[in-house]
Amino acid sequence: MKSKTLRLYAFAYLAFLYVPVLVLPVFSFNNSQFIAFPLSGFTTRWYGALAADSVLRHALSNSLTVGIVTALLSTMLGLAAARAVTRYRLRGAGAALGFISLPLFIPDIVLGLSLLMLLGAVGLPLSLAAVVLGHLLVCVPFALTVLIARFEGFDKNLEEASADLGEDGWMTFWRITFPLMLPGITASLLLTFITSFDEFLVAYFLSGTEATLPIYIWGQLRFPERLPMVLALGAIILAVSVALVIAAEYIRNLGVKKPMVGA
């Protein structure tokens, strides 16, 4: 293919990706209840309405809690499991890895519903804790993939060299493994947090009376008069996410960016 044609295509594709997303900020500043052209002037009142909505604030805090707990737990679990499969010769490691990755191949609705049934069967209430459990299913495979790649990317001799130079397993972890894994850990935390923060269906079945942000948004979509406000919320989420990604990239550059092989 000619590189010029290809470049043209690339920009067209980029437009396809961006146009729907840009609908959010554009109409969030539009001074009209109706989402239609022509635009009818600039306003920030939708953002004001957001700030005044206490139900939203509660949903946001629920989502942050669930997202942070899920990110920390799934990254810790992923770190241990990734270390196990990359640094030890374990019988059945492949099967275990397959089992842990299974949720990638199961529709979210089935994950959510089956957990809902289990909670009902053992008599546990629906709660944010149940949402975290459901989100772990979705997030641990992601964390594991990211962290295994990182573990495989660095020379095992580095950990041996540390032991050889007199450090025990714990100090080797803190002086070598952790700093070298930091970019992977950051990526895993970010990926799992965003996945959990954005997850709707599992949370929808498991959250009970405590709405998370996507559940709140889902509820708002039925009311046309509240749409501009929801779009404003989407624009904020987009802005914060982009800032977060840039910050994570900055942290990554503070760590090691060069090839992580000893030779």
């Binding site: 020379d155 001799n157 580095l158 041996e160 700093p179 760590g255 090691v256 000893g262």
Partner: peptide, 14 residues
Amino acid sequence: PTNMVFQSYAIFPH
């Protein structure tokens, strides 16, 4: 009481 020079040198990259 041993120390090793690894074939890959295993220089800590960070």
